[in-house]
Amino acid sequence: MADSVDISKGLPPNPEKATLEGQNKFLGFWVFLGGETIMFATFFGTYLGLRGGTADGPTSADVFSLPLVFIMTMILLTSSLTSVLAMFAMKKNNFKALMGWMWVTVLLGAAFLGLEIFEFYEYSVHYGLGYTTSAFASSFYTLVGLHGAHVLFGLGWITTLLVRYRKSGITLTNAPKFYVASLYWHFIDVVWVFIFTVVYLMGVGV
């Protein structure tokens, strides 16, 4: 794992792990994801414990709308695929395709976030489900809002990378950064899989 690289040999097949720094970023990020899993578990556990406590306010079955959640789910799942395609482009040293797929990922993520903000607005203004209305409301907004905050952070992160490296081409410095950002994006999608199942799908039938 040298710290210098022979440019003439071409981009290594796994550019994200070609340097020691890249390997460290890769490993460190998985440590972080293991911890994130447990953090989200505490929020899921809290929501599951409190979701019945509606304090005469609206229940989950009153407010949740499946069509909206379905659209949000499809958008986020597709954005996960586009970041996979971006990583394939990166390994092939196709800088334009990497940037293109990453921008598509950002746009889909922004659409998802917009729909989530609209959803929260609908619930709080039209259905009277404020943050402090009931234990169900607080735990719902905290869990789904935490996920939304992750999406927002991911959007800022990927946009920063895209703007900073808009002209640099794929290097051994930025390849690990794009790779780790795409791992983060997949993790957001994995968390959403459990949110749409545990919160929304299990919430409409009660």
Binding site: D3, S4, G10, P12, S168, T171
Partner: peptide
């Protein structure tokens, strides 16, 4: 440390099999 780490590559070192 880090010679040429911030330089782009002209092509990929991937072999045909790897592709």
């Amino acid at each position: 440390m880090g010679e040429n780490l911030s330089q782009p590559f002209t092509d990929s070192a991937m072999s045909k099999d790897e592709k």
